[in-house]
Design a protein around this nucleic acid. Sequence first.
DNA 1: ACCCTTTGCACAATCGATTGTGCAAAGGGT
DNA 2: ACCCTTTGCACAATCGATTGTGCAAAGGGT
Lengths: 346, 346
Amino acid sequence: MTHAATKLKHVAEAAGVSLSTASRALSGKAVAYRISSHTEQLVLDAAAKLDFRPSQVAQSLRTQKTKLLGVVLPDVSNPFFASIAREVTTYAEENGYSVLLADSRESTEVERKLIAQLRAREIEGLVISPVGLHQQHLEKLHTANLPVVLVDRGFAESPLVSVTSNHREAARGAMKILIENGHQEIGILQGIPGTTPNDERLSGIEEELKETGIPFTSSMIQGNQFSESSGYEAAKFLLKKHLGITAFFALSNQIGLGALQAIAEAGRKIPQDISMITFDDHPYSEFLASPMTTVRQNIKELGRLAAELIVKQLLTGRKPKKKVHQVPVEIIERASVFNLLNSEKE
Amino acid sequence: MTHAATKLKHVAEAAGVSLSTASRALSGKAVAYRISSHTEQLVLDAAAKLDFRPSQVAQSLRTQKTKLLGVVLPDVSNPFFASIAREVTTYAEENGYSVLLADSRESTEVERKLIAQLRAREIEGLVISPVGLHQQHLEKLHTANLPVVLVDRGFAESPLVSVTSNHREAARGAMKILIENGHQEIGILQGIPGTTPNDERLSGIEEELKETGIPFTSSMIQGNQFSESSGYEAAKFLLKKHLGITAFFALSNQIGLGALQAIAEAGRKIPQDISMITFDDHPYSEFLASPMTTVRQNIKELGRLAAELIVKQLLTGRKPKKKVHQVPVEIIERASVFNLLNSEKE
DNA sequence: ACCCTTTGCACAATCGATTGTGCAAAGGGT
DNA sequence: ACCCTTTGCACAATCGATTGTGCAAAGGGT
């Protein structure tokens, strides 16, 4: 493109050497191929003067390495995934890889198409937060020897490498706080059923309830997307149907926002009328009408680790030893959980 | 990569035709090159059976078209830029282009390097939110005939195409609301001085103050980054130095978050003690301790329009007629602005 | 029957790099 | 002086597609 881009040929001519010599001098193989240091310098000078940058396209074709990573996320505009995109791109860039970004819009169909396109571009590896309901197309990549790292969403019993938060422990921790504060009727605002973040959180919730002897009612679980509208509908429904409800546990930030809307519309106040804990911490969590108690995932670490796993694999050619990578989670307690026990004492 | 990827050669052999015939049949040039429909079908069938996807790398080299767009943003994890990334990638994808994403971390130096790398990958066009203090390296692209579209941040008197909000009008509108509510001592929490979003907002602010006869004090303008910490420091400083201050205008969402922090630490309440308007609306703006009055930029439109301008230019080969594209802005009034006039009457 | 046009495809060059190999010139040993 | 090794580079093939051109076979007109 860029019109008169200088090619290796021009450098070679300017230096008065052959293409092969120019190529070798420029790629640091002068000693290995016995290019005299004088000739080497001629080439380097010519390249510098002509502002030569080798065509990565041509290099890719010849060396069969594109130095390209695919990153597929269900919603790049979601700050959670945006942070992952950022970590992966900067880590990749630092290691000589570039990132092709694609947004699957939470659709497995779109996800398949995007992956096909990325393969046509001969990406060397894929970092993906899959929609999460199907993994066959991803396993196919794995068997085709294309390194894949799942981030945020994994699959049970998968041959694929994954980096996720410890959803189960995180959910247990949040439930523990609610229960310790005397809550028994807790509405669970879930995301996409069948995805591991959702289901593992649910099973953590169930475990914690069982352990403390509180009955686990499936009708207290509502919602079907990690979205604001799903959170809104689910919370609205639960507020109507379960009059005794005293707390919500929202399984994502977006869901939480929707719940906030529903709670406000119902004329309830957090935390006096209804307590709440939300997955995903944010800068604004602290400044909400009631500062929100949140489960803070270590997003940077999730992104960086995923990038590292794929890049190291490409650089060394060795698959990571560990398949499942769990990143610890932190619970930030603020003011959105009301203590029912204290209030009874008073 | 992917091990035994089928190449055009294999398709040609399977169909019993030459490479050229296979290529032409697959790229829809059968009639133009008088391939019989029987032969065409043989090729198509073979390609389908072998799951042939042409190497984009080889195609790119031969056709000198990579179908690659570069997108460079100062901070992908910022929801504002993340939304732009999303709009551009999906629009590009729909039109056969893929997006190489890079994050300049608000550094012109990094920005330069990233652009050099993107050029080595032979991107056909660049969508960039530049750091905004230097444009020489961007003009160079323009003169090298690489289509560039600036988004969010432009340059005064630039030959480059840009898509931005109407910063001036937006800022005037916000100031007008504050002034109409009786505010005269208004702290401006600015971003990076010298960038067009910042400076045009400032000049909008100045215009509005002048028009209403309120003195414009430069010491009321503080801050130097579009970041939370800059907003925090600036607000903290102003609260200390200007005891008569009654309102803040924060020139970005992140700045606003920092200001919230400083205001809380100073023990002041919004809006009673201090009013506030923030640039950039967000889902949570409504649920803050005091629901925030915000200037809502049409981010989707900014991103989509930028993508459209670059893609259409590539598709048609014609430069857009208009250089400067301004997208209207909307002000969402909530509860963070206190009416000083009413309170005096009472 | 002959010639000219059309049909239907294959050959070979090409994009811009990398890399295995070959060969002349220089150097070194006796 | 002669031969062998080392030095220093160039030639040409190659990655996987696209595309200009040439040519044999078929068809059509008189």
